[in-house]
Write a protein that binds this DNA or RNA. Structure first.
Lengths: 350, 350
DNA sequence: TTGGCAATCTGTAACGTTTCAGTATATCTA
DNA sequence: TAGATATACTGAAACGTTACAGATTGCCAA
């Protein structure tokens, strides 16, 4: 019995991965003291604290995540909830990189929680909340009245949304100012003499759909241009659909002489549709498009682009959730990213 | 003392989230029995087993991950290790989706572990192994002699590589057959009468660099075409660099009349460079490019494309690691994806 | 009847952490 | 000098799970 006890103590020094017990053994202190010393608790003597922290660093102690999680309920995990079929183009990776960048400096891990078209978007959120699998959540494709945001608010799960809601509740978000984007886009087209503008909008359910539409409408009346309706299709539609609808539209009597496109991939389809109709970009019609990587000007030099930085969005979202988890006021964790200058094509120096 | 015991027991029924203790209380069994009944242990009576599983399903019992992890060391986590600055285009999201798709049917979570140019690529791997943060790892940008693969083999961490190694050791991988891609590409160019071909290769350090080069060389001699060296640049270089080098090359006396490009984004730059030099795609030169999403034909109809399915790669990689974790022979968990047909442009039906 | 043996079930300990409720010592107050 | 008080530390319990080492029961062979 006594022998067993001694054996147990001694094991601590020889084990594979150091634990609090190892540190306690090495320093001659109790595990409690070691635990507290590592988190700078005030009731630990200054010298003891330094000594423990030194030894911990020396032997490369890292707290066991399962132990912490089991005891405290804190997971040190942020979950990024993604729709696996919609978000087609690359911006997902940018967001992930942005989030990672911020989390890298923290003990947090990033887990990706997917859901697909067949599922209720609420389902992965419920899972996360019910199982307590994350300390914070980031969602995208935010809706004006977003059941996911409501659910998490009700259940006390910190989160940040990519895009704003419109439910009269306050929560962290990061958004790109799509209202401003649409205004700038229209102004630019107007300044080139374009007067009949079409908008390829975001999908109607999402909040930034109306932001974009409002900006578009505001700017239209400001510059005295008119809208050619193009609302049978959105950036969520397939490339083929957008292309053929654009071609249809461009073959009509009353066709637009300017396009505003909310997504880069869709812009490729718009341009293809324009050319299918036998028209020429830059001569018959101009197109302003959002893009997240600087590739559109290679596609057609005549394209006008506005950059949206998704990596930045990822970082901001991560900072926001962490802030909320850390106790900051949700209202102070909201940010809006303004569109960069509308950029015309510039040939790079050789 | 006795009172306390009773209180403790009763708490089990009223708690927020059901645990084994809750189930034990409800069924009148011991926690051990419940635990075993849930995992179909043979020493549990058939009726008891069914009863426990029924109740568990009814009240929505889900094992506490922290508990399992602490006790068993199993994390139920697969880590996807990503370089945050290199992998520029969108294929990262496809891989993630592919992995997610497979993991969704399992208790596994996907965590994304990033590393950046400044870091030793081995560092995140060491972290994962030392802290036991994952049961399996997926890596990309695989090298012929890959220190990460070696390290994980030595430390008994199951993994799968995107791309093969060449170290004389066997481990799970998924790879796209870049040798076959290069051959098909060259053949296609040759069949169009192209005789002087340039290759924009993958970055030299990676395994598929030589696969691509070998395929290219093999096919060149097969069809009797010659190579115009273009090895001052690779798909890892910036768009601007590739563009200006291409333009330089195309202004030379002895310029290529065909390109093989290993990445879609780079192809945009190649075409831009060609046009910078005043030449025309399809007339003066043809280009065969890999692509992961079907957008290149919108860019220039004359482009010849070969599709690489990264979503499939993700799924295969996930299946491979899971297989290894499940005890399958690593040698049986290798797969190679053949390039689809070289696709010429087809105008979609309106 | 007794011992043995299979079939079922159970309590206890342990994983690594934090928190609660202390204990021991030194220092001050009256 | 006695008691209070602050300082620095400690053991035990608990989070939820699984594994080890039994315990109880019924049944069969001897």
């Amino acid at each position: 019995m006594d022998k067993q006890r001694r054996d147990k103590k001694e094991e601590a020094s020889t084990q594979g991965r150091p634990t609090l017990k190892t540190l306690a053994f090495m320093t001659g202190l109790g595990v409690t003291t070691v635990s507290r010393a590592l988190k700078d608790a005030p009731e630990i003597g200054a010298e003891t604290r330094r000594r423990v922290q030194l030894v911990a660093k020396q032997i490369g102690y890292r707290p066991n995540r399962a132990g912490v999680r089991l005891r405290t309920g804190r997971t040190n995990v942020i979950s990024l909830v993604l729709n696996t079929d919609r978000e087609i183009m690359s911006f997902v990776s940018d967001i992930i990189y942005g989030v990672s960048e911020v989390l890298a400096e923290t003990p947090y891990h990033l887990i990706v929680t997917p859901y697909s078209r067949s599922q209720d978007p609420l389902e992965p959120i419920r899972y996360l909340v019910e199982t307590g699998s994350a300390d914070g959540v980031i969602i995208s494709r935010t809706q004006p009245n977003d059941p996911r945001a409501r659910y998490m608010l009700e259940h006390g799960m910190p989160f940040a949304t990519h895009g704003r809601t419109d439910m009269g509740v306050v929560h962290p978000y990061h958004d790109f100012d799509n209202h401003a984007f649409a205004i700038e886009a229209v102004r630019r087209l107007a300044s080139m003499g374009r007067r009949k503008l079409a908008l390829l909008s975001p999908p109607p359910g999402l909040t930034y759909y109306s932001h974009t539409l409002n900006g578009f409408a505001d700017a239209l009346s400001e510059v005295g241009a008119s809208e050619i309706p193009f609302n049978t299709v959105s950036i969520d539609h397939s490339i083929e659909q957008i292309r053929s609808r654009t071609a249809q539209l461009m073959r009509r009597e009353n066709r637009p002489d300017g396009f505003v496109s909310s997504a880069a991939a869709a812009t490729l389809a718009i341009v293809a549709g324009i050319e299918d109709a036998g028209l020429k970009l830059g001569r018959d019609v101009d197109v302003v498009s959002k893009q997240s990587s600087d590739l559109l000007h290679l596609f057609r030099p005549e394209l006008l682009v506005v950059n949206e930085n998704f990596r930045l969005a990822g970082s901001e979202l991560a900072r926001s959730v962490l802030g909320w988890i850390g106790g900051a006021a949700p209202g102070s964790l909201q940010s809006l990213s303004l569109p960069g200058e509308v950029q015309a094509y510039q040939r790079p120096a050789d």
